[in-house]
């Protein structure tokens, strides 16, 4: 009986959904209207940057005319290339490689280090495990800002190096937590049977856990990349040699140097963000899933 009512309900719902009543059409129209307007608002600053990067500086700051694509050229980009092309100011490609290198080490080092400790916490029994678990949970809420200044004070002899930019960021309580919650949710049976077959924990980790955990590895990769690529406060304290400066810091440096040429600054911004935007558009689904997975609920 009850399944019959269910069937009936579903049928009704289907009809409701399919019906193309005028009210429904208007509703859909307004739905799209709303989304379009909000999209326009969200995209406006980005569009402004893209258009501004191609316009002469004098025409960038001109009220809403800033959106009008007029007198477009790549001159601003050429100026950026020309400005950052010697040892005193740094090299554009160097800012890039600095950012890439530092982010790369943070992300891949982090994947290894954090997934290992998370696995040990989730699946192995060892002395001190409970204490470390509590420690990691406590550290999750501690933001980097809280330790930035003492960290600077301890590491100030290593300013203007690469390792000082990535080493403190490899281990991350947050990444450990993400791995941990994922590993805890994996079915135990496969591991147990592997264990009976004589596989040690290390082998289980490499041969079973890692292949089963691609989603969480992807999430952690993307989340820690976003953090590493945007890093500002610590490089601000630690790096001022143009040869070691990462991109997000350099754009601030460029911005503060008078005269403030908006065209080239926007061109620099586009150069900075375009590759990441491209990666984002290509792997959009992954980005969004990773962010969704970052929510620690409860």
């Amino acid at each position: 009986m009850s399944s019959a009512t269910e069937q009936a309900k579903k049928e009704v719902m289907r009809r409701i959904r399919r019906s193309r009543s005028p009210k429904k059409v208007i509703k859909t129209f307004f739905h799209y209207m709303f989304l379009t307007v909000v999209t326009a608002i969200f995209f406006a600053p980005i569009a402004y940057m893209l258009i501004g990067s191609l316009k002469p500086t004098a025409e960038v700051l001109d009220g809403i005319n800033g959106f009008v694509p007029k007198n477009l050229s790549f001159n601003n980009y050429l100026q950026v290339f020309a400005t950052f092309n010697d040892e005193s100011m740094g090299f554009l490609w160097r800012f890039y490689t600095n950012s890439i290198l530092v982010s790369f080490v943070i992300v891949f080092g982090g994947l290894i280090v954090n997934s290992m400790i998370a696995y040990a916490l989730a699946r192995l029994r060892w002395r001190g495990r409970d204490a470390v678990q509590v420690l990691v949970i406590l550290l999750v809420i501690l933001p980097f800002e809280a330790i930035a200044i003492p960290l600077f004070f301890l590491l100030r002899d290593f300013r203007n190096t690469y390792f000082v930019q990535f080493l403190p960021f490899i281990a991350s309580a947050f990444s450990i937590y993400l791995f941990y919650t994922f590993f805890i949710g994996l079915p135990l049976e496969i591991q147990e049977s592997a264990r009976i077959d004589g596989a040690g924990p290390w082998r289980i980790y490499r041969a079973i856990i890692i292949p089963m955990s691609k989603p969480v590895f992807a999430s952690v990769t993307i989340l820690s990349f976003l953090g590493a690529w945007s890093s500002f406060l610590f490089p601000l304290m630690m790096v001022d040699n143009p040869l070691y400066v990462p991109l997000p810091l350099e754009i601030q440096v460029y911005f503060t140097q008078p005269p403030t040429d908006w065209g080239p600054i926007f061109a620099f911004g586009v150069i900075l963000v375009l590759p990441v935007m491209a990666v984002f558009l290509l792997f959009q689904r992954w980005f969004i899933q990773s962010v969704a997975a970052s929510a620690i609920k409860g």
């Binding site: 290894i112 280090v113 954090n114 290992m116 400790i117 696995y119 040990a120 916490l121 192995l124 029994r125 060892w126 002395r127 001190g128 495990r129 470390v132 420690l135 990691v136 550290l139 501690l142 809280a146 330790i147 200044i149 003492p150 960290l151 004070f153 301890l154 080493l167 403190p168 960021f169 490899i170 281990a171 309580a173 450990i176 040690g200 924990p201 290390w202 980790y205």
Partner: peptide, 29 residues
């Protein structure tokens, strides 16, 4: 059991880094 050593070893790199770059600085603060 046999997990003890592996467990400690696997968590060691993370623990060392967290200690050096999070806990020590915070205690320093």
């Amino acid at each position: 059991g046999q997990d003890n050593l592996v467990g400690v070893l696997m968590s060691l790199p993370g623990l060392i880094l967290l200690t050096l770059f999070v806990i020590v600085p915070f205690i320093t603060a």
